[in-house]
Write a protein that binds this DNA or RNA. Structure first.
Lengths: 205, 205
DNA sequence: TTCAATAGTGAACGATGCGTTCACTAAATG
DNA sequence: CATTTAGTGAACGCATCGTTCACTATTGAA
């Protein structure tokens, strides 16, 4: 019953409240307009508590995004339906981009030049790695079944699907719609990675 | 001789000086740290002159980027060497990204959510359109020569090469190196767009 | 149970940069 | 030469940053 009337929260309890507040602000006003005071107020915390934990807004939001990311990322098992699996994961990524998480990424991109390189590298890796791993798994499964060309396992190719989505998202105001995902599959991904039958079936348009 | 001792510049003369100052600042301190006062001082102009022309920092930088972009963009004629032409244009784009122009794009991305949609759309189109046109020309030429598959003319495919470069640039601190460009060509672009002979030659690795 | 140590609160502060305003001045116009 | 147009530069109010400090709640050891 400590949670129902939190007279004064501390430690992780408070930290999570701050993260939630930051993510909510992120979703409401966008990265560029997130105010430290607003986050503190929303979390019913003091501004000093924020600065005690993170040196500036950029780091706070990075931390919040990371917190959300590790919480959400699912483990994925290929079903054998190559196109279906890809569609599913791609829609999941697009969904993420529509959330505060996506807004955080956009903001982080905007500040890249002025941010220390280790942080940059760390965050990019954390976001890219799980996605790459999922597509690698899907393609490996496909190669084993003979539906995917072995060349698809090259990192640049494995990274292609998430890259297309990220590029689309960053370049426009919103994530790729289901229609756009189908176009990526039809005209870029399947022709590149699928073996004969699978690839050709789609070139009728 | 009006330029050598500009007692007080006006109109386009002053405007160009402001653009140059903005771009120089952009290159030196990065989008997020461009100060209006700094731009004004560098251009030896009054802050009021900036705000008379553009409503805020974002618009000023957009205008400056546009000024630079239209000045630089070359007309390109395919030579018949598919891979060579692609490499050339891709290196040109990467070069642009290494300039203040690239810095401007990064900043613009970061502010997307808070910027009016027409401006967003306008700028994206202005940047994408010339690139798409160049690759469309290269691919059309290739199709005519039989070195490129007709499906490569689909917009999503035409947009792929610039998209790969932009994604790489936004996601890291710097534009793609020549090596990375070769990898894109080897493992993504050529296999997708080139007809039999051209494509297979590269899959020996 | 008491009490010191620890952690959070909230208000105030100086600094910085934004975007505006205004009195003044230089250039263009005729 | 007189008038209009456009730029200058300093000052201003405002918002937000990141810091500091006196105060208070929570914790856990004596």
């Amino acid at each position: 019953m400590t949670e129902s009337t939190p007279g004064r929260r501390r430690g992780d309890d408070l930290e999570h409240a701050i993260f939630d507040a930051a993510l909510a602000e992120l979703a409401e006003v966008g990265y560029a307009n997130v105010r430290m005071e607003a986050v503190a107020a929303r979390a019913k915390a003091g501004k000093a508590s924020l600065y005690k934990r993170w040196p500036d807004r950029a780091r706070l939001i990075q931390a919040a995004a990371r917190y959300k990311a590790t919480e959400v990322e699912p483990s994925f098992e290929p079903s054998g339906d190559l196109r279906g699996d890809m569609r599913k994961v791609m829609r999941h990524i697009a969904g993420q981009q529509a959330s505060p998480f996506g807004e955080a990424i956009r903001g982080w991109i905007g500040e890249l030049k002025s941010t220390p390189d280790e942080v940059t590298e760390d965050l990019r890796t954390r976001i890219e790695t799980p996605r790459i791993r999922i597509f690698a798994k899907i393609y490996e499964d496909g190669v084993a079944r003979g539906t995917v060309k072995p060349e698809a396992l090259h990192p640049r190719v494995v990274n292609l699907a998430p890259g297309l989505l990220t590029h689309y998202f960053l370049t426009r105001a919103e994530p790729a719609t289901d229609d756009v995902i189908e176009e990526f599959l039809d005209h870029v991904l399947m022709p590149l990675i699928a073996t004969g039958e699978g690839a050709e079936r789609l070139e009728e348009s």
